[in-house]
C-alpha cells in the first residue's frame, strides 16, 4: 500500500509538470493506479517518459530544422565559391579572360537597360533572349505538333513502328548542325533554317518517348478497353493518352533541352538576332565579359525551362 501512495505522489508531480497534451494520459494512469500496483508503475514510468519527451522535443525539432537548413545550403554555396575561386585563378593566369568581378560589373551595366534598341545589330540583351526563345518556341512547337502524334501512331501500330524504325535510326544520331546547310538551301533564309534545325533535332525524343509509352500501356488496360468495347477515340483519350502523358513529358523536357542547346550554335552561324548571335557578335567586338554573361544567361534560361517543365510534368502525374 505504501508503494501506491508514493507513486501517487510521483503522479501528482508529473501532473503539475504535464502539458495539456499529456494530461489525459496521466489521468488514465491515476485511475489505473487504484487497480493494479505493478502495472501502474509501468504506466507511470511511461507517462513520465512521455512528458519528458514532449518537454525536450521542441528545441530538438528546432535544432533539426537548423541542421537540415545548413545541410541543404552549405554544399551548394561551397560549390559556387570554389567555382568562382578557380575562375579568378584562371583569369589571373590568363589576363585576357575576364574575372568574376569585371564580369559582374559588366553584367550590372548590361542589365540596367536590357531593352534598348539602337540598330538591328545593337539591341539590348532582352531582345536577343526573346528572339531566341521565340525561335525555340516555333521549332519546338512544330516538332511537338508532328512528333507526338507520330509517336502515338508508332506506338499503337506495329506496322508504323517497323516502317519508321530504319529511317528514325539513321536520322536520329545526325548532329543538329549538319541539318543547317540543307535548311539554308531549301528555305533560302537564315530565320526559317534555324527553326528547321531546332525542329529536326528536337523531334526525336518526343517521337521515341511517346512511342515507348504507348507500346507500354499495360495489357490489363487494353483488356478493359476490349471488354468495354471502347472506340479507338475513347481508347486514346481515356487510356493511352493519360498513361503516356508522363512519358511524353519526359520527351518534351529532353526536346526543349536539345532545342535550347542547338539554338546558340544555329544563331552563331546564321546571324540576325538572338543570344547565340549576340555571343558571337560580342566576341568579334572584343567584349569578352559579354561572352561569359551570355554563357550564364543561356545556362540559367535552360535551367528555368527545365524546372518549368518538371513542375508541369508533376501536375500531370497521376500517382
Amino acid at each position: 500500500m505504501s508503494a501506491i501512495s508514493i507513486n501517487k505522489e510521483h503522479l501528482k508531480l508529473i501532473l503539475e509538470d504535464a502539458k495539456t497534451s499529456s494530461e489525459s494520459i496521466v489521468k488514465e494512469t491515476v485511475l489505473a493506479a487504484n487497480e493494479d500496483n505493478t502495472h501502474m508503475q509501468m504506466i507511470v514510468e511511461k507517462a513520465a517518459e512521455k512528458t519528458q519527451k514532449s518537454a525536450k522535443s521542441q528545441p530538438s525539432a528546432m535544432q533539426i530544422k537548423i541542421t537540415d537548413f545548413f545541410k541543404a545550403v552549405i554544399p551548394p554555396v561551397f560549390g559556387i565559391l570554389m567555382f568562382l575561386g578557380i575562375w579568378t585563378l584562371l583569369s589571373h593566369q590568363q589576363p585576357i579572360l575576364p574575372g568574376p568581378i569585371s564580369t559582374w560589373h559588366s553584367a550590372v551595366e548590361l542589365f540596367s537597360h536590357p531593352f534598348h534598341q539602337n540598330s538591328l545589330d545593337d539591341q539590348g540583351i532582352g531582345w536577343n533572349i526573346l528572339s531566341s526563345l521565340q525561335r525555340v518556341a516555333f521549332g519546338f512547337g512544330l516538332a511537338a505538333l508532328v512528333g507526338i502524334p507520330l509517336g502515338f501512331m508508332i506506338g499503337r501500330y506495329e506496322f508504323m513502328s517497323s516502317m519508321t524504325a530504319p529511317v528514325i535510326s539513321i536520322l536520329r544520331p545526325v548532329s543538329p548542325l549538319a541539318w543547317l546547310p540543307l535548311g539554308l538551301l531549301v528555305m533560302g533564309a537564315a530565320g526559317p533554317a534555324a527553326i528547321w534545325v531546332i525542329f529536326i533535332s528536337s523531334i526525336w525524343p518526343m517521337v521515341i518517348n511517346t512511342a515507348v509509352g504507348v507500346s507500354k500501356v499495360p495489357q490489363d488496360y487494353m483488356n478493359v478497353a476490349k471488354v468495354l468495347n471502347l472506340s479507338e477515340w475513347k481508347i486514346i483519350t481515356k487510356i493511352s493518352f493519360p498513361y503516356v502523358l508522363p512519358y511524353m513529358m519526359t520527351g518534351v523536357r529532353l526536346s526543349i533541352g536539345i532545342a535550347w542547346l542547338v539554338i546558340v550554335a544555329a544563331e552563331m552561324l546564321n546571324g540576325g538576332a538572338g543570344i547565340g548571335f549576340w555571343l558571337w557578335d560580342e566576341y568579334n567586338a572584343s567584349n569578352y565579359e559579354h561572352i561569359i554573361i551570355a554563357i550564364f544567361v543561356v545556362g540559367i534560361i535552360g535551367l528555368l525551362l527545365e524546372l518549368g517543365l518538371s513542375m508541369l510534368a508533376k501536375r500531370f502525374a497521376y500517382e
Binding site: 488496360y221 483488356n223 478493359v224 476490349k226 471488354v227 481515356k238 498513361y243 497521376y318
Partner: peptide, 20 residues
Amino acid sequence: AAPGPERAVVFQNHSLLPWL
C-alpha cells in the same frame, strides 16, 4: 467472336484506370 459488354469481366487485379 470478340469481347462484348454482354460478358463483363471482373479482373483479378481490378484493372481500374488510375487517372479516373
